[in-house]
Amino acid sequence: MVSLLQSIDTGHEDMIHDAEVDYYGLRLATCSSDNSVKVYDIKNGNTLLDDLKGHFGPVWQVAWGHPKFGNLLASCSYDKKVIIWKETNGKWGKYYEYANHDSSVNSVQFAPAEFGLVLACGSSDGSISILSYIRENNTWDAKKIQNAHAIGCNAVCWSPAIYPEPAFDNNSEHTLKKMLVSGGCDNLVKIWKEEQDRWIEVCKLEVHSDWVRDVAWAPSAGLHRHIIASCSQDRRVIIWSSDDAITWNSTVLHTFDDVIWNVSWSLNGNILAVSGGDNKITLWKQSLEGNWQCISDVGKGSSQINN
């Protein structure tokens, strides 16, 4: 059974576009069409910690940095900017602003901490930027993948930090490879890899028949196997799996009644949450036999909150 514990009134004046909980699940960051980003303490009484003003357009997404790098939060907006915010003594201030996109920035995500302080963002101008913090001189280095998706990139997501399996190839270098998955208005899901300071396209996954709305690379629980979920305007959620991140198999998780907007994995990658235009969130789990089963759903309506 699932139950509703509490509701947190964010006080945003318009629709919330994203809500993210920090590494330990103690704070919540939300962003909205009202141009603001808000941070709440959800451990002690859901108090508003700060209201971050700095964007001049709807804020689409927020992302928490790894606590190893201090308290960092990134947000991306319709105003073509990405802002990295830093908390000092309880107050959030602008730490870095990136304004090198020609159109709305739709998605932002920090890389796994193993890769250092790095973030990726995808924009409606079709490009993806990768920003890396250089500790030595306290600056940010930006690399851009031009024309990643025609008409626009809707979502980016990092691969978990997986060391290549040593048993197969003794000559391969045992270093972490930075990889990304992105989805766009060209109906494609693309996999990118950093190769000697450059980002190259590893493969292009063509199954969706309409805009890809969201992509999510599953956290790896030690299996040397990659799993990605993608969802699209074509009402389908596809699960992509691969052993080498080069050749991918696709399985349609389900064809829904309406457009699917978001997919996201639980912390250890065993549950996939799917949400969309049918006002429903469904939770999916892979059974031992490998089938995907819906285990729970959360819908619209007017039930009571059980305290």
């Binding site: 509703l4 809500a19 907007w261 639980s266 006002n279 969130i281 729970s296 959360v298």
Partner: peptide
């Protein structure tokens, strides 16, 4: 299991989630 969210806005617009 199905759980309902007591919000009219969720009903009118749609829902999303965060883990």
């Amino acid at each position: 299991n199905t759980i309902l969210i007591p919000s009219k806005l969720c009903n009118r617009a749609g829902v999303s989630l965060a883990w």
